[in-house]
């Protein structure tokens, strides 16, 4: 009943989509983190204009479906080709890859901004006061006290967000990119065997996500040395 040869063939074909899925994930997570840092800084800056802008950005991108954002960027902006060409931006919006990366980055940036903000707000006030009492400068305080404590606090939620990005990359297949899901669709179109192909594709995603969970656990133990079991003497 179970066609091992077909499953093996599907797995091999799907593996070709792995670099794209991982590349989109890595790119969006890295760029999204930068964007989220800026947005969180804006929200915590106490400057009304920056706070408002960051608030609007987070509100819009968390309140609408990623697929709508993706179509708006890919098909929607495609309508303005002459203008984009005049601005010298068409090379970017012409490629489905850049459109997908942009949509994923903007989307995860909004979610991550809230995670960072939550982490920073959770830093105990006493720790900051203590640092200041020791005569730490603002930069040093941020680097040595606030960020490490915030990172530790935010890590579990951030791990979930990275997993969301892995899953969200599957939407890139809707604008012709051949990521894991794109290849899976192609295989089904050729073989009409949806169940087997999707089981194989699902296995890839699950493996990636389990690996991420493992990495997050590792990071947690590194960031929280006080919680580690003491080494035997």
């Amino acid at each position: 009943m179970i066609d091992i040869a077909f499953l093996a063939e599907s797995l091999r074909a799907l593996a070709a989509g792995l670099p794209l899925t991982l590349g989109l994930t890595g790119g969006a997570v890295a760029l999204g983190l930068v964007l989220a840092g800026l947005a969180a800084a804006g929200r915590l800056s106490g400057i009304a204009v920056l706070d408002g802008l960051a608030r609007l950005y987070v509100f819009v991108f968390r309140g609408t479906p990623l697929l709508v954002q993706l179509f708006l960027i890919y098909y929607g902006l495609g309508q303005f080709r002459p203008d984009l060409q005049a601005l010298g931006l068409w090379w970017f919006f012409r490629e489905p890859y850049w459109c997908a990366l942009l949509a994923l980055t903007l989307n995860t940036g909004a979610y991550t901004a809230e995670i960072i903000r939550g982490g920073v707000l959770a830093v105990p006030h006493g720790a900051v006061l203590a640092g200041r009492a020791c005569g730490m400068s603002r930069g040093l305080l941020l680097r040595r006290i606030v960020l490490p404590l915030a990172a530790r606090q935010a890590l579990p939620a951030y791990g979930n967000e990275v997993i969301s990005v892995v899953k969200a990359t599957s939407l890139a297949s809707t604008i012709t990119l051949l990521d894991l899901t794109g290849i899976a669709q192609k295989l089904i179109a050729q073989s009409f065997r949806a169940l087997e192909v999707f089981v194989c594709a699902g296995a890839f995603y699950l493996a990636i996500n389990l690996a991420i969970i493992g990495l997050v656990r590792l990071a947690e133990t590194i960031l929280a040395p006080d919680l580690r079991r003491p080494r035997p003497v």
Partner: peptide, 18 residues
């Protein structure tokens, strides 16, 4: 080779110069 779900979508992308 880029595969589209509908012919309408590839018509639009040809017109857009993608």
């Amino acid at each position: 080779i880029r595969e589209y779900k509908t012919t309408e979508q590839h018509d639009l992308d040809l017109a857009a110069g993608r």
